[in-house]
Write a protein that binds this DNA or RNA. Structure first.
Length: 218
DNA sequence: TTCATGATAAGG
DNA sequence: CTTATCATGAAC
């Protein structure tokens, strides 16, 4: 038998949002919903974010999350997530990929939303030159490492205020959209928490792959 | 389906 | 020093 959709999935339709929403979110899920469907602009490239993963924060914070980089406290790498909402947290994954997160919550409280996949809306020529031009464009920014490569993000971009109109990297919120949620990808702890969010029907959404280290559910 | 890649930080 | 990690593309 093949179920159409895992029991852990939910779906819904969110409302219009703003930067104030991101600062005052009630929980990580709300932060993820705020950012899903937004438009990321990097120089002449424009992307529609179609998949995100919400991460909580410190053990002792309001949203303890063992899968979050910030869970064990502030380090030089994760410090941006402890600051104000709307800052870009860039980290190097497995020593080679650059992944992007947007911080949320009040200053001093850690929280971040990982940008996992996007559709290219403008700048196809620039992205094509960086990615595999032979592959379809919906695969160029599918997956967090591919997304970072598409816009050539580096650690120098860490801490960027994405709501400052003068920034090279900006995020535009406010789009209303449908969404679906399910378990996060690649995490070995808290793997059942349904904080991966995506827009149904987008071809750019990455395939779900459970971490081989995550415990098997009974 | 498995492997090489190789930064960061926690734990021994 | 050793191990685990919010991954990917190429090799098998």
């Amino acid at each position: 038998m093949r179920l159409g959709r895992p029991m852990s999935q939910r779906r819904g339709h969110n409302r219009r949002v703003s930067i104030e929403t991101l600062e005052n979110v009630e929980n990580p899920l709300e932060a993820g919903l705020t950012i899903l469907g937004s438009t990321l602009t990097v120089d002449d490239i424009s992307l529609r974010i179609v998949e995100v993963e919400a991460y909580g924060g410190e053990k002792d914070g309001p949203w303890p999350d063992p899968a979050a980089h910030s869970y064990r406290g502030r380090t030089p790498r994760n410090s941006v997530m402890f600051g104000r909402a709307g800052r870009l947290y860039v980290y190097r994954s497995y020593g080679m990929h650059f992944c992007m997160n947007i911080s949320y919550g009040p200053d001093g409280v850690a929280g971040g939303v990982l940008l996992r996949a996007a559709e290219i809306e403008a700048g196809h020529d620039v992205v094509s030159a960086r990615r595999s031009p032979d592959r379809p464009s919906h695969q160029w920014a599918r997956g967090p490492g591919n997304l970072g490569a598409s816009v050539a993000i580096t650690l120098a971009d860490n801490g960027t205020d994405v709501f400052n109109p003068a920034s090279r990297i900006r995020l535009e919120l406010g789009e209303s959209k449908e969404w679906v949620s399910g378990p996060r990808v690649g995490v070995s702890t808290a793997a059942e928490v349904p904080w991966r969010l995506w827009i149904p029907d987008s071809r750019a959404v990455s395939a779900y792959r459970r971490s081989p280290r995550a415990p098997v559910i009974s």
